[in-house]
């Protein structure tokens, strides 16, 4: 699975993406798994109310299932327009 990070989430984690094989069933489980990798992930994901997520390029929620998903992206609230 490809995990992408944007804006300050990318800056805090230090890389724009990770590629990993995961058993996580939901976005929440994936976040917990990532937090176990290194402290910088714990810092980036310390306040999940300020994180938005997309699964396969569609906005999703923390409880969104990951079955069959190819790409998950984490980013701050969007500031387009």
């Amino acid at each position: 699975m490809q995990i992408l990070y944007f804006a300050w989430v990318r800056e805090r984690i230090g890389v724009p993406k990770d590629v990993l094989a995961t058993e996580a069933n939901t976005v929440s489980e994936l976040v917990e798994e990532l937090k176990g990798r290194a402290e910088r992930y714990q810092i980036a994901f310390s306040d999940m109310s300020s994180i938005r997520v997309a699964v396969d390029q569609e906005l999703a929620e923390l409880n969104t299932p990951l079955a069959g998903a190819q790409e998950v992206a984490f980013f701050p609230p969007m500031t387009g327009g």
Partner: peptide
């Protein structure tokens, strides 16, 4: 919709420092 549902993020350079624009 575009303001909070389109995946764009603004960053400002102010006095030599980059800062993300808060939503």
């Amino acid at each position: 919709y575009l303001k909070s549902r389109a995946p764009f993020w603004k960053k400002e350079l102010r006095g030599g420092r980059w800062e993300w624009v808060s939503s």
